[in-house]
Design a protein around this nucleic acid. Structure first.
Lengths: 391, 391
DNA sequence: AGATGAATTGTGTGCGCACACATTCTGAAA
DNA sequence: TTTCAGAATGTGTGCGCACACAATTCATCT
């Protein structure tokens, strides 16, 4: 049979210089490959049956103290790691997941997150894993739609939930309910600390604002004025935007700082009056740079460029409209939140938790990706390659 | 048995406004879940045995035209995707991979790539996949060590190879041999087009130089002078550096450009004379920015800062020394090549090819990640999270 | 028609695990 | 001693696939 495996690892390149070929030979004789210990092997080694080992491994009880000890000792000796693939094979129950996000039809940003969820689902299917993801969408401008959807999800008793909880106060009771019902849930995009979620996946928004400040001010003269602009948002209810602004302002609180920061909140209920007010604001004040806290930078960038093309604009996310502005030079930097990868990872994390019973990190912070006209294309071609084993 | 699955997908949030709850109910009655078609199901539908379906699926021959037709028709009708997990279960053989890279002990950059390979291997082990990765290292400054290692690898007849081929001409014959012996190989970090590799994983180096030019010149006054610096490299033999410089210079070939570009090649055989020559060079010419084409920016950044702290420095990679310079303000931008993720993906790609028999893209270009003092920490915390299902 | 060998087709097994179920072992009560 | 729960332990099965091997069919020749 197998056994008698001869492993040969060679590190060699200095032969001439006398250190010569450094070869390490490992002989694995008639023993099990240490990488590949089965429950069966543990059972044999402990002198018990596979069933007993299984009971010990899963704390199913009904094992005598003596047997438990024997198994525990073997487990400590060898480093058993269950074969995750084999583990899922026998599982034929269907896990039902629900994803709750803003409606992708209302915002290209959430369209991308939606794509990520689908990619995650597709990947699991490919591996023969029975995960059904259902989608529930809400209107990001109306918190009642979130509450309603949340209630329905709770009543449908899913096996796991993935949520982008834009509304702070509206989401708290939902998470309380989920926790009580022991339904695992993962947050992405926006972190709600009190939620006690299984995991949060997203960026550090304070640092994100920090970075925006750096980008907007690089190479700018002293005594400049910068603006923070929130578009179309219910600011007091939106933790994520407040956090970004805090980070932005924090960057300028340093000994030698000479810059001035202003904040604007804009609503584009109708386009004409929006354009007017934008024009008025940016004509009145001389700004060296503008930081838009949402993915809506494309709404004001072209207007600002007409007023003064040297005003530096920093926004968020690789949505088409923003990239057009980037290429035309009206937006100078974008910070990519990578909603697609966030969402995909969310699904994967739920699978890891429910199915593979892996421990998943309670915090998965994404890097703050800086996008410029020169590197934007490299991000696009990369986004498509979301497949792989893992992720 | 199973069947009678009731799927319920709800999209609901506009009830008040009359559009009401939009519910889509899918009833799957007594039929197989379309997501989960087995070979057995195909066999039943085609009226043949599982063995015949298997033979058709794998082109093993020994099937009559009639049976082949029957199976093909069913396959066309339903969209069969094999269960990748089950596929690997029965595979008993041990695949032997060899990774050929510069010696990690000589360069922290290659240390990171080494970590990535190990991470990839570890992940496969966790999934119970029998992949043994052996390592073979060469001295990146001596092409003979590459040639020697390559020869040994070829003679050991591995199942797959992952290579970072820094030497252009020295590597061509190796790849020819591998191709003739039908040993699949994947390149990473440096692309050798003629190699006809299974896949290349890495960055577009021309664009990388392009981006460096953008970073070095943002917010700089007109008529500035910038330097391209190659450190410790056999330039004519190193395609990757030449390509980066091309990209860098290309950026400044535009109608309105007023900048000047200079190129320097430095060798730090002994530290003192190196420091002297660096000091001399950068004292002689007034430079607005410097682009170092390797991960060695930390060797000159502190010296340059002493001469003139406003000279902007752009380098490569998140190695400790560079990050220290970044935090101390002597390096202003780094472009992250993500050697860890590149290498890990290389292993995964080989597994996908050999084991899962998935098609893998012949080109996997990584994004050009811009690192600044403000976002460097977010990349570090993220690097650790390399696990997941995929990748 | 019967025999023979090749072409085709069908069946069985193992991969490692989880879980259901069957069996054996205790010790206390009858 | 026998009986009998209940605890402890062991055995068997399926998950979907690949591959080895067994069984069948078919065409051809005697």
């Amino acid at each position: 049979m197998c056994a008698h495996i001869l492993k040969l690892r060679t590190i060699c390149y200095l032969e001439k210089e006398g250190i010569c070929v450094q070869t390490q030979i490992t002989n694995v004789i008639d023993s099990i490959d240490p990488k590949n210990i089965r429950i069966k092997d543990i059972a044999k080694k402990a002198g018990v049956s596979e069933g007993t080992v299984d009971r010990v491994l899963h704390n199913r009880g009904k094992v005598s103290v003596k047997s438990t000890e024997k198994v525990r000792r073997v487990l400590k000796e060898i480093n058993y790691t269950p074969n995750l693939i084999a583990r899922t094979l026998g599982v034929n129950r269907n896990y039902r997941l629900v994803a709750l996000t803003p409606d992708p039809n209302l915002d290209p940003f959430w369209q991308q997150s939606f794509e990520g969820i689908k990619a995650g689902e597709a990947q699991l299917v490919q591996f023969g894993i029975h995960f059904n993801v259902e989608y529930s969408f809400y209107d990001p401008t109306k918190k009642e739609t979130f509450q309603k959807a949340a209630l329905e999800i709770f009543h449908s008793h899913p096996d796991g939930v993935l949520v982008a909880p834009l509304f702070y106060y509206a989401s708290i009771p939902f998470f309380k309910e989920l926790a009580e019902a022991k339904i695992p849930f993962i947050l992405f995009n926006t972190h709600i600390l009190e939620a006690k979620a299984l995991s949060f996946i997203g960026q550090d928004l304070f640092k994100s604002g920090n970075l925006a400040a750096e980008l907007v001010s690089i190479g700018q003269p002293a005594n400049s004025t910068f603006a923070v602009v929130h578009i179309n948002e219910d600011l007091p209810n939106s933790v994520h935007l407040v956090e970004k602004e805090k980070g932005f302002r924090d960057y300028f609180v340093s000994p030698g700082n000479s810059h001035t920061i202003k904040t604007y909140v804009l609503n584009n209920t109708d386009i004409e009056s929006f354009q007017e007010s934008v024009t008025k604001i940016f004509n009145d004040t001389f700004l060296a740079g503008i930081f838009i806290t949402t993915s809506k930078a494309y709404l004001i960038a072209p207007i600002v460029k007409k007023i003064n093309p040297t005003i530096r604009i920093v926004g968020y996310d690789l949505i088409k409209e923003n990239m057009d502005c980037l290429n035309q030079g009206s937006i100078h930097f974008l910070i990519n939140q990578n909603p697609m990868r966030q969402a995909k990872l969310g699904i994967q994390a739920l699978a890891n938790h429910l199915l593979f019973k892996k421990r998943i990190p309670s915090l998965h912070l994404f890097p703050l990706e800086i996008i410029t006209p020169q590197n934007v294309s490299t991000y696009l071609s990369h986004e498509g390659n979301l497949t792989g084993i893992t992720v």
